[in-house]
């Protein structure tokens, strides 16, 4: 197997007084969707934020073979990592167009222009709303804008934190369709979801997280019917 795009090992994240993630390992290859599922509070969001450099972490983390443990968020963006956080973190007081422009802050003007065309092709709704302030968008449009803004940086690894949260099923289906399209166009995806059934349906591989540990991992298709997932979510075991 060639060098994975992202690989972490002995990875731990302390959050205040609590160690939220303990000694985990994970690999993501090129053009694959890897999902991390688990109940609320398992440590999934914490993991994504640490990988992006927003939270401090201990352990090894390599991106395309390079050690990135000490890099700042903006340096990770430059390398091709991008996070769409759970709360979207849009620039609410700015227009859709400006939000997208800033998504391409680290790329050349030329790439920015082409990126914008590409985003508008994938999300025609954003094109209709390009002059509107981001704060006035609906939940689904916000998620599209957040993803569009992330795509503007031409990421090699796109990390999505709960993209389905609070969205109507129809919009969730659309978002998930776009995620698979992105994978097919060569972007690797790390998808964190509470909506386990939907995530497993589109993912190639999956990890299940419980209390900061990976307790299950395997091909997504094999895990869909696994009873242990329902147990983890509803606490039926023991």
């Amino acid at each position: 197997m060639s060098t994975p795009l992202l690989s972490i090992a002995d990875y731990s994240i302390a959050y205040g007084t609590v160690e939220a993630v303990h000694d985990i390992a994970l690999n993501i290859g090129d053009s694959e969707i890897v999902t991390v599922i688990g109940a609320n509070g398992a440590g999934k969001s914490t993991l994504l934020n640490a990988l992006m450099g927003v939270l401090p972490a201990a352990g090894q983390v390599r991106f395309a073979g390079d050690d990135i443990a000490r890099l700042e968020v903006e340096q990770r963006v430059e390398l091709g990592m991008c996070l769409v956080p759970e709360k979207r973190e849009l620039f609410a007081s700015m227009t859709v167009e400006d939000n997208l422009l800033l998504g391409g802050y680290r790329v050349s003007a030329d790439r920015r222009r082409r990126g914008m065309d590409d985003v508008f092709r994938r999300f025609p709704r954003l094109n209709e709303r390009r002059r509107q302030l981001a704060g006035t968008l609906s939940g689904g449009e916000r998620q599209m804008l957040a993803m569009g803004r992330a795509l503007m940086s031409s990421p090699r690894l796109l990390m999505l934190d709960e993209p389905s949260l609070g969205l109507a099923p129809k919009i969730v289906a659309e978002i998930f369709r776009i995620i698979t399209e992105l994978r097919d166009s060569g972007v690797s995806i790390l998808l964190v979801e509470q909506n386990a059934r939907a995530a497993l349906r589109i993912a190639d591989r999956a990890y299940m997280m419980e209390l900061g540990l990976f307790t299950l991992e395997g091909r997504a298709g094999d895990l869909i019917g696994d009873a242990r997932i329902a147990e983890s979510y509803l606490g039926i075991s023991e």
Binding site: V54, S93, L102
Partner: peptide, 23 residues
Amino acid sequence: TLRGKALRATAANRLGARLVGIS
């Protein structure tokens, strides 16, 4: 200007600004 917008973005949402690569 992109710089000026980046400043506005930092003011509007610091985490968001960091995530798009604005220092």
